[in-house]
Amino acid sequence: MAKMDKKEIRRRDIIAAAQAVAARDGAEGATLRAIAAEAGMAANAVLYYFGSHSEIVAAAVSASSDRFLEKLAEALEPDMSATARLAAVISAGTTAGLDDDVSRILYEYWPHMLRDAQQRGIQEELTRSQERVYRDIIDAGTHSGEFSPLLDPAKIARTLVAQEDGLVMDVLAGSASSESVLDLMGSLAAALLGINAETLCGLIGARAGK
């Protein structure tokens, strides 16, 4: 593995600082000055490594998005059945990032996509990637005979991602528990894919309890 140069190491430190400030103080609190202070640098020094505050924010959100997708991938194993894979992704997608603030950072910046094209692009790519994960599982389960989709698989994948995104917001806000959200996601997926809800929810619960 190639060794990172000092500039790249410093850039990563600044990204980590931006993530830490956003998780602690929110997107509005993650100013250039606050990020620089977190990184132990002067604000003008930070701009040597990034061209602007918005570039730092984009890098921090992209890094958080990448980490979220890594957590989904880490939940899957090659020998899993489609149903087990579905349970793993639902569990990971609903709880991934809650332990290290990845989800909180993504949600802090989500409203920015309404007026920031760069942020919109990052969030849209994350959504497409999440949908691809679900779509691959649905296709595999349909092929194996485990699933009997009630809708077009692409629509089911989009529905599950949208529902997951909204429910994780409830967990972050403290208005819902992870357990209730996981049960709802499992019940919805089971209904849409024609599988036994008790079986799927049991697999999800077992993973969440690990």
Rank of each mutant, 00 (worst) to 15 (best):
M1T: 10
D5Q: 03
R10Y: 13
R12F: 06
I14P: 00
Q19T: 08
Q19L: 07
A20R: 00
V21G: 12
A22Y: 03
A22E: 06
A23L: 07
A23H: 05
A23M: 08
R24M: 06
A27H: 04
A27R: 07
A30M: 09
I35D: 01
A36Y: 01
A39I: 13
A42K: 11
A43I: 04
A45C: 08
Y49L: 01
S52I: 12
S52M: 08
S52T: 06
H53Q: 12
S54V: 13
I56H: 00
I56Q: 00
A59T: 09
V61M: 02
A63H: 05
S65L: 01
S65R: 03
S65V: 05
D66E: 12
R67P: 10
L69G: 06
L72E: 03
E74N: 15
A75P: 00
A82G: 10
V89Q: 11
G93I: 02
T94N: 08
T95M: 11
A96C: 10
G97L: 03
S103N: 11
S103W: 02
L106A: 02
E108R: 02
Q118P: 11
Q119F: 12
L126H: 14
R132T: 10
V133E: 14
V133C: 15
Y134V: 02
I138P: 03
A140H: 13
A140T: 14
G141E: 05
S144H: 15
F147G: 06
P149K: 07
I156T: 11
A157T: 07
R158A: 14
E164I: 07
D165M: 05
M169G: 01
V171G: 02
A173L: 05
S175E: 12
S177D: 04
S178C: 15
E179C: 05
S180R: 04
S180P: 05
L182V: 04
M185C: 12
G186R: 09
A189H: 01
A191V: 09
L193Q: 12
N196K: 09
E198Q: 14
C201D: 13
R207T: 08
G209T: 14
